[in-house]
Simulated scan of single mutants.
Amino acid sequence: MSTTNPLVEAFNQTAYPVIGHGKRNVSVLIEALEQIDPELDSDNYGSGEVIERFQAQIAQYLGKPSAVFFPSGTMAQQIALRIWCDRKGLKKVAYHPLSHLEIHEEQGLQELHQIESILLADKTRIIRLEDVVNLKEDVACVLLELPQREIGGQLPEYEELEAISSYCREKGIKLHLDGARLYETLPYYQKTAEEICSLFDSVYVSFYKGIGGIAGAMLAGDEEFTKESKVWKRRHGGDLISLYPYILSAEYYFNERKDKMGLYYEAAKELADFYRACRALEVRPQVPVSNMFHVHVPLPKSKLEPILISVYQDTEVGLTANLKENGEHACYYEVSLGDRYAKIPKAKLAQAMKLLDERTADVL
Rank of each mutant, 00 (worst) to 15 (best):
T4P: 11
P6H: 05
V8Q: 10
E9H: 09
Q13D: 06
Y16A: 05
G22N: 08
L29W: 13
E31K: 14
A32E: 01
L33V: 08
E39P: 10
E39R: 15
S42A: 13
D43W: 03
D43E: 08
N44D: 13
Y45R: 09
G48M: 03
V50E: 05
I51L: 01
E52K: 12
Q55F: 01
I58A: 03
Y61W: 09
L62V: 02
P65F: 07
S66P: 02
V68T: 08
I79C: 10
D86M: 12
K88L: 14
L90P: 06
L90F: 07
L90M: 09
K91F: 10
K91E: 05
K92V: 04
P97K: 02
S99F: 06
H100C: 13
L101K: 07
L101C: 07
E105K: 12
Q107E: 12
Q107N: 12
L109R: 06
L112N: 15
Q114E: 11
Q114R: 11
K123S: 15
I126C: 06
R128I: 01
D131S: 05
V133G: 07
L135N: 08
V139L: 07
A140G: 10
C141T: 05
V142E: 03
L144V: 05
Q154G: 00
E157M: 06
Y158H: 05
E159L: 11
L182H: 06
L186C: 01
A193I: 00
Y204I: 13
Y208R: 15
K209W: 12
G210C: 10
G216T: 02
M218I: 11
M218Q: 03
A220W: 05
A220Y: 04
G221T: 09
G221I: 09
D222S: 00
E223P: 07
E224G: 08
K227F: 07
E228Q: 11
E228S: 05
V231L: 02
W232A: 02
K233S: 01
D239H: 04
I241H: 12
I241Y: 11
S242C: 07
Y244H: 15
A250G: 07
E251M: 15
Y253L: 09
E256C: 14
Y265K: 03
A268F: 07
A272Y: 00
Y275H: 14
R279C: 10
P285H: 07
P288T: 07
F293P: 03
H294F: 15
H296N: 14
V297H: 05
K301P: 07
E305C: 04
P306M: 09
I307Q: 02
S310V: 09
Q313T: 00
T315K: 00
G318E: 00
G318H: 02
N322E: 15
E325L: 12
L337E: 09
Y341K: 13
I344Q: 04
K354C: 14
D357N: 15
E358Q: 15
A361D: 12
L364F: 02
